[in-house]
Design a binder for these strands. Structure first.
Lengths: 106, 106
DNA sequence: ATGATACTGAAGTCATCGCTTCATTAATGG
DNA sequence: CCATTAATGAAGCGATGACTTCAGTATCAT
């Protein structure tokens, strides 16, 4: 889970169209055309988004004939949860420590 | 947890300098100067990063005198974990379904 | 008051992003 | 074989991103 990989991962998730694609794929696999149809963008745009999702490990695709079938992939989500898990402990300790200080507020 | 908020959140996390800031702050609060020192960038750059982190709910700052003290904030991380939690079930169901199909691979 | 310290605002630069159009390749169906 | 369909490559465009420098504003110490 190196730095550039995390850059790619979070960057991939930062775009609403890509998150919509992921949401769609988490329901069922789909072709590029099927993904494009409800999103109001070009096939080309979807292809580009898919490349981003693929290199960040969030989606995987497979071309059979002229149809590319896209689905959710594991490595991206594993990396995401791994990063959060590796920081959660410190966050919670820090946020608890803040709670002690913030008793004058609110 | 609306769309634009998620955009901001993931965008904030996509930058290595900002993640370094968060990592530092998850250890202890720090001033802007203290954050800048080990990162090899300008004070101005840190100020700009802090604005991003603050609007995405990942950090909070407070200026006393001429020193701005920065610390981890809760809403950002809550939103992050909330988003993941709301998708994990479908992902896992999907990835399990893939496992059944991927017996020809690897 | 004076000078140093801690930061912020404005403006500019260079790279990257998301998207489009146009052209092309490749597979499929009549 | 020919037309349609599915997708990709190339190139360009407007917008945004990360960063810098330079100039300013407060605050603090002496």
């Amino acid at each position: 889970m190196s730095g550039p990989e995390l850059d790619q991962l979070f960057h991939a998730l930062a775009d609403p169209t890509r998150r919509a694609i992921l949401s769609r794929l988490s329901h069922a696999p789909a072709s590029v055309s099927a993904l494009a149809e409800p999103l109001g963008v070009t096939l080309t745009a979807i292809s580009q988004h898919l490349r981003v999702l693929e290199t960040s490990g969030l989606a995987a695709t497979q071309k059979l004939g002229r149809v590319r079938t896209c689905r959710i992939a594991e490595p991206g989500f594993t990396a995401l949860e791994g990063w959060i898990a590796s920081h959660r402990a410190q966050w919670e300790r820090r946020l608890d420590a803040l709670g002690d200080v913030l008793e004058e507020d609110d």
